[in-house]
Amino acid sequence: MLVKQISVFLENKSGRLAEVTSILGKNDIDISALSIADTTDFGILRLIVNKPEQAERILKENGFTVSCTDVIAIAVVDEPGGLAAALRVLDDASIGIEYMYAFVGKATNEALVILRVEEPEKAVQVLDKNNIRVLPAERVYEL
Protein backbone atom coordinates (compact mmCIF):
# COMPACT_ATOMS: atom_id res chain seq x y z
CA MET A 1 0.00 0.00 0.00
CA LEU A 2 2.84 2.36 0.82
CA VAL A 3 4.12 4.69 -1.84
CA LYS A 4 7.82 5.31 -2.33
CA GLN A 5 8.68 8.99 -2.27
CA ILE A 6 12.03 10.31 -3.45
CA SER A 7 13.56 13.16 -1.40
CA VAL A 8 16.41 15.22 -2.79
CA PHE A 9 18.60 17.65 -0.87
CA LEU A 10 18.96 20.94 -2.72
CA GLU A 11 20.81 24.09 -1.88
CA ASN A 12 18.93 27.29 -2.47
CA LYS A 13 20.73 28.08 -5.69
CA SER A 14 19.22 28.90 -9.02
CA GLY A 15 18.97 26.09 -11.52
CA ARG A 16 18.99 23.18 -9.08
CA LEU A 17 15.34 22.31 -9.57
CA ALA A 18 15.69 22.50 -13.32
CA GLU A 19 18.71 20.19 -13.07
CA VAL A 20 16.82 17.49 -11.16
CA THR A 21 13.75 17.60 -13.35
CA SER A 22 15.72 17.53 -16.57
CA ILE A 23 17.75 14.51 -15.41
CA LEU A 24 14.48 12.71 -14.67
CA GLY A 25 12.99 13.80 -17.99
CA LYS A 26 15.97 12.53 -19.97
CA ASN A 27 15.60 9.17 -18.26
CA ASP A 28 11.94 8.98 -19.09
CA ILE A 29 10.80 9.29 -15.52
CA ASP A 30 7.43 10.84 -15.00
CA ILE A 31 6.70 13.05 -12.00
CA SER A 32 3.19 12.80 -10.67
CA ALA A 33 3.52 14.94 -7.58
CA LEU A 34 6.09 17.12 -5.90
CA SER A 35 6.56 19.46 -3.02
CA ILE A 36 9.41 21.60 -1.75
CA ALA A 37 10.19 22.37 1.85
CA ASP A 38 12.76 25.08 2.29
CA THR A 39 14.82 27.07 4.77
CA THR A 40 17.07 30.04 4.04
CA ASP A 41 19.97 27.91 2.93
CA PHE A 42 18.57 24.66 1.64
CA GLY A 43 15.45 22.83 0.65
CA ILE A 44 14.13 19.31 0.29
CA LEU A 45 12.45 18.34 -2.93
CA ARG A 46 9.96 15.52 -2.48
CA LEU A 47 8.81 13.63 -5.53
CA ILE A 48 6.36 10.94 -6.45
CA VAL A 49 7.45 9.36 -9.72
CA ASN A 50 6.49 6.39 -11.84
CA LYS A 51 9.81 4.55 -11.30
CA PRO A 52 11.08 5.41 -7.82
CA GLU A 53 13.98 2.92 -7.59
CA GLN A 54 15.33 3.98 -10.94
CA ALA A 55 14.90 7.67 -10.10
CA GLU A 56 16.79 7.23 -6.84
CA ARG A 57 19.66 5.45 -8.56
CA ILE A 58 19.93 7.94 -11.39
CA LEU A 59 19.88 10.98 -9.12
CA LYS A 60 22.54 9.40 -6.90
CA GLU A 61 24.67 8.70 -9.94
CA ASN A 62 24.38 12.36 -10.75
CA GLY A 63 25.76 13.32 -7.38
CA PHE A 64 22.60 14.24 -5.50
CA THR A 65 21.86 13.26 -1.93
CA VAL A 66 18.69 11.22 -2.22
CA SER A 67 16.61 9.17 0.13
CA CYS A 68 13.54 7.05 -0.29
CA THR A 69 10.65 7.35 2.19
CA ASP A 70 7.40 5.45 2.56
CA VAL A 71 4.39 7.72 2.33
CA ILE A 72 0.65 7.20 2.00
CA ALA A 73 -1.51 8.45 -0.81
CA ILE A 74 -5.17 8.95 -0.02
CA ALA A 75 -8.08 10.09 -2.09
CA VAL A 76 -10.56 12.38 -0.39
CA VAL A 77 -13.82 13.75 -1.69
CA ASP A 78 -13.17 17.07 -3.38
CA GLU A 79 -15.60 19.10 -1.32
CA PRO A 80 -15.46 21.25 1.81
CA GLY A 81 -14.48 19.15 4.80
CA GLY A 82 -13.25 16.26 2.71
CA LEU A 83 -9.64 16.45 3.90
CA ALA A 84 -10.64 17.25 7.47
CA ALA A 85 -12.57 14.00 7.75
CA ALA A 86 -9.49 11.99 6.76
CA LEU A 87 -7.16 13.87 9.05
CA ARG A 88 -9.50 13.47 12.00
CA VAL A 89 -9.25 9.71 11.62
CA LEU A 90 -5.48 9.88 12.02
CA ASP A 91 -5.72 12.32 14.90
CA ASP A 92 -8.18 10.04 16.71
CA ALA A 93 -5.65 7.23 16.37
CA SER A 94 -2.89 9.55 17.68
CA ILE A 95 -0.90 9.30 14.48
CA GLY A 96 1.18 12.44 13.90
CA ILE A 97 1.66 13.85 10.44
CA GLU A 98 5.22 14.92 9.59
CA TYR A 99 4.18 16.68 6.43
CA MET A 100 1.65 16.42 3.62
CA TYR A 101 0.96 17.84 0.21
CA ALA A 102 -1.88 17.64 -2.22
CA PHE A 103 -1.64 16.71 -5.81
CA VAL A 104 -3.70 17.20 -8.82
CA GLY A 105 -5.83 14.26 -9.79
CA LYS A 106 -6.91 14.03 -13.39
CA ALA A 107 -10.56 14.45 -14.19
CA THR A 108 -12.02 12.99 -11.04
CA ASN A 109 -13.99 14.46 -8.22
CA GLU A 110 -11.39 13.29 -5.77
CA ALA A 111 -8.42 15.20 -4.40
CA LEU A 112 -5.24 13.22 -3.87
CA VAL A 113 -3.11 13.84 -0.82
CA ILE A 114 0.32 12.52 0.09
CA LEU A 115 0.91 12.01 3.81
CA ARG A 116 4.09 11.30 5.68
CA VAL A 117 3.30 9.87 9.10
CA GLU A 118 5.26 8.29 11.92
CA GLU A 119 3.62 4.89 11.65
CA PRO A 120 2.59 4.37 8.04
CA GLU A 121 1.30 0.76 8.36
CA LYS A 122 -0.91 1.64 11.29
CA ALA A 123 -2.13 4.75 9.50
CA VAL A 124 -3.15 2.70 6.46
CA GLN A 125 -5.11 0.33 8.72
CA VAL A 126 -7.09 3.04 10.46
CA LEU A 127 -7.74 4.94 7.25
CA ASP A 128 -9.00 1.76 5.62
CA LYS A 129 -11.22 0.93 8.56
CA ASN A 130 -12.77 4.38 8.37
CA ASN A 131 -13.43 4.15 4.66
CA ILE A 132 -10.85 6.67 3.58
CA ARG A 133 -9.55 5.47 0.25
CA VAL A 134 -5.87 4.70 0.32
CA LEU A 135 -4.36 4.42 -3.14
CA PRO A 136 -2.16 1.40 -3.84
CA ALA A 137 1.38 2.28 -4.87
CA GLU A 138 0.97 0.86 -8.39
CA ARG A 139 -1.96 3.19 -8.99
CA VAL A 140 -0.05 6.20 -7.79
CA TYR A 141 2.97 5.46 -10.00
CA GLU A 142 0.66 5.29 -12.99
CA LEU A 143 -0.91 8.69 -12.40
Partner: peptide, 15 residues
Protein backbone atom coordinates in the same frame (compact mmCIF):
# COMPACT_ATOMS: atom_id res chain seq x y z
CA UNK B 1 28.24 18.33 2.39
CA UNK B 2 25.09 16.38 3.14
CA UNK B 3 25.86 12.72 2.64
CA UNK B 4 23.19 10.01 2.46
CA UNK B 5 24.05 9.21 6.05
CA UNK B 6 23.32 12.72 7.28
CA UNK B 7 20.32 13.32 5.07
CA UNK B 8 16.74 13.22 6.26
CA UNK B 9 13.66 14.16 4.29
CA UNK B 10 12.43 16.26 7.19
CA UNK B 11 13.51 19.87 7.54
CA UNK B 12 13.49 19.75 11.32
CA UNK B 13 15.96 16.86 11.38
CA UNK B 14 18.33 18.73 9.10
CA UNK B 15 18.02 21.83 11.24
Amino acid sequence: EVSDKLFSDEIKRLE
